[in-house]
Each structure stands twice: as C-alpha cells, then as structure tokens.
Design a protein around this nucleic acid. Structure first.
Lengths: 360, 360
DNA sequence: GTGAAAGCGCTAACAG
DNA sequence: CTGTTAGCGCTTTCAC
C-alpha cells in the first residue's frame, strides 16, 4: 500500500507520482474530497445554497434542498468540520479535563460526559491534568480554539484563576463550585450528614476524617459538612491529613487514624478507604468490630473489597452529563444571559460491611 | 456577564450592541484574537515568516525568528489549530475508539494513549462505540476530517470492514490484528500457556474457558492458545459461552462451569472472573479448594477481591502508547512505506489466591 | 429564496 | 532567507 492517510494530499500526490510501482493506486480513495462546490456544480445551484441546505434548512426551498441533499448523498459529500469551525467559530467539540484517570472516581463522569456530548452530536476531547493546576491551565490555552468549551472535573485551580479563565473561555465545573460559573455537584452537606447519622446511630461518639489534597475543594466541603454534622450530634470530629487520595495513601492514613484512637474513620474517597482497609487488615485490626470505615464515591470494587465498603454513592454519570448540558446551554446561540445554573445531585449512603457498632 | 464564550464573535458583537446594558463589557477579552498578520505587521515582516518561525524554525534567520517570537509573545499570539489543519491537512489530533468505558480493562490503554499523544503535542479525542461495529464505523466517518488517525481498541469490526476503512483512514489497532495494519497486542499464546502450565503444575487435568463475545478477536486468540497449550500438556479444554465480559456475566458463566464439572476456570477477563467468584461464593463453592479461577488483565480490584484473583497481567498502558506511536509513525511525513509494524507486548501471570491444587 | 463575493487564520508554492 | 500570492472548505453578509 502506498499511503492511505487521507491527509497531506499534496504530498501524497507527489509520492504517488514518483512511486507508482507495485502500489495498487487504483484502490485508493480519490485524492480530493468532495466539497460543497462539487455538490453545487452537480446540483446546479450556488455553494451557499448547499451550505444552507445543511446548516439552516428552512432558509432554502424544500424542493431545492431535497435535490441538493440527494446530490450530496450521491457524491458522498461530507462536511468538513474544520472549515465550518474556522469560519463560524463553532467547533461542535467540548473537552473534559480530569485530574487523574487512574482514579475510578472519574469513570462515571467521563462516561456521562461522553454520552451527553455524543448525543448532541458534539465531539468529545479528553485531557488529563495530572493533578496540576498548571497543566490544567495549559490544556485550556492549548485547546481554546479547538473547542466550544471545557468541563473541569474536580479542578485544582484556585477560584481566582478559574474566574479569570472564565472570562475568555466557556467553562462548566463538576465537583467544584466557583462564583459565577455553572457547575454540577453532589449535595456534600446532606450526603455527609447521612454518614454522621449512620455513625451516630451505631453509637460512635467521634469520627476522624482522612482528608484529601488541600487544594481539593471537595475535601474542604466534606470536612465542613462532617464537622457541622458531628457538632449537631454532639460528636467530635477530627481532620487528619492530607493524604494522597489513592490506595497507597491508605497506609499512612490508617496509621494516623489508629494513633488518634479513632473508632470511626471517614476517608476522603473509596480509594483511600480501600487502602485503609488493607492496612488495618495487615495490622490485625478488625473492621468493623474495632473500627468502622466509610468512603465516598462507591467506585467499582467498593462492593467486593473486604469487608465491603460503606460509602456515599452519587450519580457520577449524571454529574458528567449535567455539566456538558450546562456547557451546551451556555454555548448555544440562544443562550439566556441568566445567572449560570448550578445543578446539585443527590447522594445516598450505601451501607455495607465496613461499619458497625462502636466498640464498647 | 454578557457572553464570555470567545466564539461566535460576529454574533457576540451583535448581542453586545443591542444589550449594552448592565453587562460589564469592559472585562471581556478583546473580541478579535491576534493572528499572524498582527504579529507580522508589528514585527515588520511577512505573515509567512511568522508562520515559518513557528512551524519550521530553521528556515528562518535566527535573529528574525527571535524577534518574531518576542513580538508574538508580547501580543499574546496563539496559533489557531483549526486554520492550520484546514490548510495543511494535519490536525495534530488522534482519536481512540473504545468499545466500553465501563470496563476497567481499557483504563490503562486510555491512559497510555493519552499520555503518548500528549507528549507528542497531539490532542486526544476519546470515543465510545458501545460494543457496536456500526457505531465504530460511524465515529470514524464523522471524525475523519478532524483527526490524523484512529486507534481502535478491541475493535468489533470484521477484518473486511477494517481493511476497507484502512484504505481511507489512518488506523492502528490494540488487542486486535488485521493483515496489513499496525497493531499492538499482548502475546496471547505464551501468556495463555503460562496459565495452562500453572494449572497443570497444580495437578489440574482439564480447564474450562468461559468465553467473551464471539466477535471478539481476543476471545478467539485466547481460546486457541488455551486449547493448544492444554493439548500439549495432555489436558482437556472446553469452551463455554459466549458470556458478556462483565461482572454480571459471571453468574451464568459460573453455573455453566459448575455443570461442566470444571476444576479450573479460565475467564475471558477479570470482570467476568470476579462475577464468577461472586457466584461461586453465593453457591457455597470454595475457591480454590474445590475450583480454581483465573482471569485476564489484572484490572483494578483483582488484588483485593476475595479470594484475590490469579490473572494474566499485561502492560496496558504500553499497549495504548505503542498504538499511538505506530499511528504517529505512519502519519508522519517521513513515514517509511515499510510493512506496518506489529508490536507484541509480554504478559505475565500474577498468582494470587484464586488458584490452588486440583481437588482429589 | 438564491447567488456572488469576501473572508476565517493559516500554509505552501514560487519568486526574488 | 523572506515576501507575494493563492487558496484549504465553509459560512455569511449583501444584493437581487
């Protein structure tokens, strides 16, 4: 095969010319894609009419349009999204920026976002920021012209940077709130209170929160809710950490909780909780008899680790799709200039085997 | 805020004109982005020189270039990838098409592919095909103009379709081989033989393969290898299924294996294996005392399910990055016309607690 | 309702 | 080494 790339046509022709040897060029696709001009010529109309037939059907006579469409079909015409984007500024593309794909937490979000985008005929770009605010910013700058907007999942950027970027870019947030920006978040307050109530009902008088990264907005929200909930129940709440929100973080986190004489541990997320479980097992501490453990997210695996993890579950897919929805709304030409919407999604506690009565 | 979208400038201006009310337009970014022409004018050179300064530095006098770059920097110039792509045909973008994001199997591949693309300054589009060959094909058609090539992970398309598409598009495969196309696969033969040997050494005289989808190339490869390996060891091998390669598929799969009086089960992937484990536990069958279970992939969770899963691990990230590499190679203007490369990655058996001596 | 014409921002011959 | 000149394929006024 010579070159089947379909791009760099010019070069391809050059190569084809000097190497028409054994290559069966006959089977190659025609070097030039068909454009609106080809369709226009064949249909006996102007290019603009072809364009309109696709992009704004009602501004063209039904009969003409049908004819144009038929010709386009016959010629195998496909609009070139790049040309459309360059001219119109609309790319019909959005990007989702995620801190870390290793974390199953985001799988639901990614899936939901991709689905929603796909359903809207919008192409979906995925970027990882490696937990760094700088990377996040760079990605945004780099992709700016290529997308209509960004969904930032668990963004690590400070509010000020985000606000500043929002002046030039179309942003929507997941699991993060910033004044003036659309966002989809779980109800961290009520959700965390469910955890507190569950623990309180089991007779626990205190809880230890094993915190995630300090730049994490979520960690702050969760801690605030946990503390206020505990206060209301007359329980004491302690924050330890930060710990890396991954399984490996669980070792140090568990040890710290043990030193703090915790009877109930609330981990920043399930990954950390699973790490804690593992460390506790290693050290011969029985869960939940001696200590109870709760996580956040209900990730894949939370139901089959041992003991199965009690965790606060939330509709992650919905969060992803809602954020895309908000972005699309904002980006739509008919966008209302109303205050950006904030969507709050309900979370619920899934009680499994890692929580039990407080030790006597 | 009025409109911060940075796109649809024309419309934006229109809106701005008729709604210059309370909106603090002053804080908006300038409506027109700076282009090479702005830079050219300011730097006192031609636009083409600016262009060359960025895209082909050595074809420009070092001093001029430095000056141009400095001016560009000062003006906050950012190249518009869309314009570049439209003109040159190079989009500096690739797409990865994955059957199902729910399957942790692909996380490594996605991560590896994103990383490699990112490292090459190539933007990364992710698409899901929902396990359907048609969707796969549609995605390719739709994205064709927007990307330089596609990585197809565990493609569901028949060889003929793939070959046909490869005439017009730049393709690379992961976990799939098709004549004439570059691909990155694990060494399914030697890998599966490791499984057989492990089982044989534990005294098993037979094994049951719980198969994945019939269109799955992998399922065929694994079965072939398992069968030939078993034959060499004088073991009998039976193929059951197909089963959906997910946890839920494990119920029926386990029951089928039980009916077949299996002493050793090899599941198509870890997801299925975990489902099998769960069902076996439900039915009171002890693993590995009564029956041994092996999976493929070593996904997240394989180490903390109970019993921890013996599984064939492979470098999934590498597979993803290798495929991107192959694509980039093929897409590069200096691409050799040599036969497309096939990369085979080594897999290795991770022995955990789900396999043990054959029951007497 | 339709056509002509002017670009979107950039690259790539081709001269000089 | 650098400038001039055409476009890439499409959308969008602006006339008719």
């Amino acid at each position: 095969m010579c070159v089947t790339l379909g791009f760099r046509i010019r070069q391809w022709q050059a190569i084809a010319k000097c190497c028409h040897q054994a290559y069966n060029i006959g089977t190659m696709s025609s070097p030039k894609r068909t454009t609106i001009y080809d369709v226009a010529r064949e249909a006996g109309v102007a290019a603009s009419t072809v364009s309109r037939s696709f992009s704004d059907p009602r501004r063209v006579n039904a009969t003409t349009r049908e004819h144009v469409l038929e010709v386009a079909e016959r010629l195998g015409y496909r609009p070139n999204p790049l040309a459309t984007a360059l001219q119109s500024g609309r790319t019909a593309t959005i990007a989702l920026l995620v801190p870390d794909i290793t974390n199953p937490h985001f799988f639901g979000t990614i899936r939901g976002a991709e689905r929603r985008a796909s359903a809207a005929g919008v192409t979906f770009i995925l970027g990882y920021t490696e937990e760094s605010a700088d990377n996040e910013r760079n990605q945004i700058e780099r992709l700016a012209r290529s997308v209509d907007g960004f969904v930032l999942a668990a963004s690590r950027m400070p509010d000020s940077t985000t606000t500043e970027l929002a002046r030039e870019h179309n942003l929507a947030l997941v699991n993060r709130e910033v004044e003036g920006l659309p966002s989809a978040v779980f109800d961290n307050g009520p959700g965390s209170w469910q955890i507190v109530e569950h623990l309180a009902s089991l007779g626990h008088r205190s809880l230890v929160y094993l915190s995630g990264p300090h730049q994490s907005w979520l960690a702050g929200e969760r801690w605030r809710a946990l503390r206020s909930g505990a206060e209301q129940r007359g329980m004491t709440a302690t924050r330890l950490g930060p710990f890396p929100p991954r399984v490996v973080g669980g070792g140090a986190a568990a040890d710290a909780a043990l030193v703090a004489k915790a009877t109930a541990i609330v981990a920043h997320n399930d990954l950390l909780a699973i790490g804690v479980l593992r460390r506790l097992t290693e050290r011969g501490v029985r869960v939940p008899q001696e200590i109870s453990v709760v996580g956040y997210d209900d990730i894949f695996g939370a139901d089959f680790c041992v003991p199965a993890l009690t965790t606060l579950a939330g509709p992650h897919e919905e969060a992803g799709s809602a954020a895309v929805e908000l972005l699309l709304e904002k980006a739509s030409p008919s966008a209302t200039r109303a205050a950006p919407r904030r969507v709050t999604l309900p979370s619920h506690l899934v009680i499994r085997d890692s929580t039990g009565p407080a030790p006597a």
